[in-house]
Amino acid sequence: DEIHIHFNGVTIEFRGLTEEAKKALEEAIKRGASEEELKELARRLIK
């Protein structure tokens, strides 16, 4: 299970995320999180 985020022309790929983690990332994107914020969020979620 993986998710691809297209962000300002950059694709960020995450693997092994739970549904909750995906929802958290989607919410962050909707509120306009920066690419760095998304990566940091993903790091926290994957652990």
Rank of each mutant, 00 (worst) to 15 (best):
G9Y: 02
H4D: 03
T11V: 13
A42G: 02
E19C: 10
G16R: 04
A24T: 13
A28S: 04
E37R: 03
F14M: 05
D1A: 13
K22I: 13
I12L: 06
I29P: 00
H6Q: 07
T18G: 12
E36S: 08
A42I: 15
G9R: 01
L41K: 00
E37H: 03
K39G: 05
L38I: 12
K39H: 09
E35R: 06
E35N: 05
R15E: 10
K22H: 06
L41I: 06
E2I: 15
F14D: 01
R31D: 12
K39Q: 11
K39P: 00
H4A: 03
E37W: 11
K39N: 06
R43N: 06
I46A: 04
A28V: 05
N8D: 08
K30G: 09
K30I: 09
S34A: 05
R31K: 09
K39T: 13
E2C: 14
E19N: 09
I46P: 01
G9T: 02
E27C: 10
D1H: 14
E36W: 12
F14I: 13
A21K: 02
R43S: 05
H4C: 05
R15L: 09
R15G: 07
E20Y: 14
I5S: 01
E27R: 11
I46L: 14
K22D: 01
R44P: 00
H4R: 10
R43L: 14
I29L: 09
K39V: 14
F7H: 03
R44H: 07
K23L: 12
K39S: 06
E26A: 06
T11E: 05
I12T: 03
L41W: 05
E19H: 13
E20S: 09
G9L: 01
L17V: 06
K22A: 07
K30T: 10
H6S: 11
I5N: 01
G9F: 02
L17G: 04
N8E: 06
L41S: 00
R44Y: 12
E26Q: 11
K39Y: 15
E20Q: 08
I12V: 08
E35Q: 08
G16K: 09
V10E: 07
K23G: 07
A28F: 10
K47H: 14
S34Q: 05
T18E: 05
E20N: 07
E2Y: 14
A21D: 13
K30E: 11
L45P: 00
L45N: 01
A21H: 13
A21R: 01
E40I: 09
E37Q: 07
G32H: 04
G9E: 03
A28P: 00
K23S: 09
E26G: 06
R43K: 06
R44A: 09
R44F: 12
E40R: 09
R15I: 10
D1S: 13
E26R: 10
I3Y: 15
S34N: 10
K22E: 04
A42M: 14
G9W: 05
L25D: 00
K23D: 07
E36L: 07
K39F: 15
A42H: 06
N8C: 12
E26I: 13
L38S: 00
K47D: 15
G32M: 04
E13Q: 11
T11H: 07
V10S: 07
I29G: 02
E36Q: 10
E20P: 06
L25C: 01
A21Q: 08
E40T: 09
